[in-house]
């Protein structure tokens, strides 16, 4: 079966084949990533072939200058993560037929990461952030026990989802928070953080949760589900971040906008069945955060001028008693 592959080329020495077509600049926030030159190759492969099969066929039989990183070819090592048609994917797991769009498949290194050459990108931002979450178990300050720690199956079941992470970087390269906020630890690191914080053998869970609640941590995730969508191993990093948020709040780390936001949200729904937008923003920002309150004033003024002010008198939905009863029964700390 014939497939057409467009390879995004980047050569730090700046030399390209004549038929490599200059691509458009990447939009913000990736405008500083060099535009790729797209070179088109035709390959003849079985219909079940994957993108990596095509890239290897190109490198072996057509153009040995194409740089591609790969090892296991079985979605285990994570080294062939790249953009396939503009989204993070493992080349070895992406079926060509499925990824053929308008008669072709476009591959390139992600503009969200530093490019080294062609499809090979620098994983430094990935590992730098990974190290920030103390990715190992901290022992209790006691001599090692005479026998191994016994850990229940149930407690490990909670961690299995994250343990399947292969550190390929798919989640980080498409993370929308990381794209605008390089201080954000990233979905890969925070999923790993959950793996250690929730491990019953770890002795510093409380301290970890404090660190993860700081700037750049769990509350800087924008909840866009890109990491859940792009993870090739089903780790669902966002779900692990949400578990960390719950753990952090339960551990008492509540002096942050995220917790204030959730509390104000719950309070409004409990008492009226609906969200009170008029009070949500100031409550989330914090009444004593004068600078934060001032920052929101211009947009509040614009909204008022456009006639988009939420009703001053917040209406309660009929049958709100039901909602209150549900909160009383299962509301936990929102009771």
């Amino acid at each position: 079966m014939k497939f057409t592959i467009e390879v995004g080329r980047y050569n730090p020495e700046g030399t390209y084949a004549d038929n490599a077509v200059q691509g458009e600049p990447y939009p913000a926030p990736w405008s500083s990533s060099p535009p790729r030159r797209y070179q088109t190759y035709e390959v003849d492969l079985p219909e079940h072939a994957v993108v990596l099969d095509a890239l290897i066929a190109i490198r072996e039989y057509q153009d040995e200058s194409v740089a591609v990183r790969c090892a296991c070819r079985s979605a285990i090592c994570g080294s062939c993560a790249m953009w396939v048609n503009g989204h993070a994917n493992l080349a070895c797991k992406s079926k060509l037929q499925e990824f053929t769009k308008d008669g072709k498949t476009r591959v390139e290194s992600p503009p969200s990461m530093p490019v080294i050459r062609d499809l090979v990108w620098d994983m430094k931002p990935f590992w730098d952030n990974h190290r920030r979450v103390t990715p190992w178990l901290e022992n209790k300050p006691l001599p090692p026990p005479m026998q191994e720690y016994v850990v229940s199956n149930e407690s490990m079941e909670e961690l299995i989802q994250e343990v399947t992470c292969i550190s390929c970087g798919c989640c980080l390269m498409d993370c929308e928070s990381f794209a605008v906020n390089p201080d954000f630890m990233g979905p890969h690191a925070l999923a790993k953080a959950y793996r250690y914080a929730a491990d019953p053998r770890d002795a510093e869970t409380h301290e970890r949760l404090g660190e993860y609640s700081q700037h750049g941590g769990i509350w800087d995730c924008t909840h866009c589900f890109e990491c859940v969508q792009q993870c090739p191993k089903g780790v669902e990093p966002l779900e692990q971040i949400l578990k960390l948020r719950r753990m952090a709040v339960d551990a008492g780390y509540t002096r942050n906008a995220g917790t204030r936001h959730a509390d104000a949200f719950a309070n409004s729904v409990k008492h009226s069945g609906r969200l009170n937008e008029l009070t949500l923003l100031p409550k989330s920002v914090g009444f004593f955060n004068i600078l934060g309150q001032l920052q929101t004033l211009p947009s509040a003024f614009n909204m008022i001028r456009a006639g988009k002010l939420p009703p001053i008198i917040h209406k309660t939905i009929p049958g709100v008693k039901r909602i209150k009863a549900i909160f009383d029964r299962v509301g936990g700390r929102f009771k």
Binding site: H223, A262, F265, V269, G273, G332
Partner: peptide, 26 residues
């Protein structure tokens, strides 16, 4: 559905999945 509550916009479910389940089941 004038008597249906707010979905919680993911905020309530993330803090308390059972609460999110119950409000939306209603």
């Amino acid at each position: 559905l004038t008597e249906a509550p707010c979905t919680g916009a993911g905020v309530l479910s993330e803090q308390n999945p059972e609460l999110g389940d119950s409000l939306n089941a209603l």
